[in-house]
Design a protein around this nucleic acid. Structure first.
Lengths: 137, 137
DNA sequence: CTCCCTGCAAATAGTTTGCACAATA
DNA sequence: TATTGTGCAAACTATTTGCAGGGAG
């Protein structure tokens, strides 16, 4: 995501481009899946100018304008990842804690079934499914 | 769930049957899907003898012995429900907030696919999927 | 009579908010 | 220069823990 892309997305909502918003977006891009604390730590590698509450507010803004998404990979904290790669959901092993990113196409038939049988349109990209590896690595 | 069922499940783990454990299990049964706070409130209708931290500890114990399960029906709190009815997962509409309990059979093919394609055994009963009703009620 | 369980209060983790100042457009 | 955004500190929500007394077995 370029700065210009970020700027235009923000502008469309009457929001401003700030250094903090650029830094947070870049950190989420680099980290893959990151909690707010992890984003803060990553940004602080290169700059002191960021506060945790700003991280929370900025993650909300970036999600609002559609540049990042969040998932619940643990019972405690949300993790954020940038939008741009293939849309995926998460499968997490309770034994080895491995997090798999699974392409949404794997859930396409399931989603169809929810729609036709229940009239429910699933947000597959937000899905996190817990379970166990048949054989952990 | 009878007191004797509860007693024997606890005994198998070297745990004791207490009034609090009976009260919490009964409350979860009555409430369907309930947060720890809701369980506390329900029990306090009939008895003063229960503390919130005991509710948390008791819900853990009851889940450990397999009498209840939890799901994440909101980003905030876990809700507990008794095991005994048909095993189900949850689908939640972000617009009307309706919570549907869906029989796990609807996800059987999806679970098969995760197992054969990824070697991942999903805990379908723990699944919560967010989305929207095609037409909200 | 032993050890598990509970209540209470305090600690902790994660997140949100009010406010004054700073910076963008 | 008019808002919007940020930092800071404090508040808040959900949950966990230490400890001393109480109760199940």
């Amino acid at each position: 995501m370029t700065s210009d892309g970020l700027r235009s997305r923000l502008k469309a909502e009457g929001l401003r481009l700030t250094p903090q918003r650029e830094l947070v977006l870049a950190a989420v891009d680099r980290l893959g899946h990151a909690t707010p604390e992890e984003v803060l730590a990553e940004v602080r590698q290169s700059s002191e100018s960021l506060n945790l509450s700003t991280v929370y507010r900025t993650l909300d803004v970036l999600e609002h304008v559609g540049l990042i998404r969040h998932a619940h990979l643990s019972d405690r904290v949300a993790t954020y990842h940038s939008v741009g790669g293939p849309e995926h959901f998460h499968a997490i092993c309770r034994k080895c804690e491995r997090v798999r990113s699974v392409d949404v196409s794997v859930a396409a038939d399931f989603a169809d079934r929810l729609r036709t049988e229940l009239g429910f349109v699933a947000d597959v990209g937000h899905l996190t499914i817990f379970g166990e590896c048949e054989v952990c690595e």
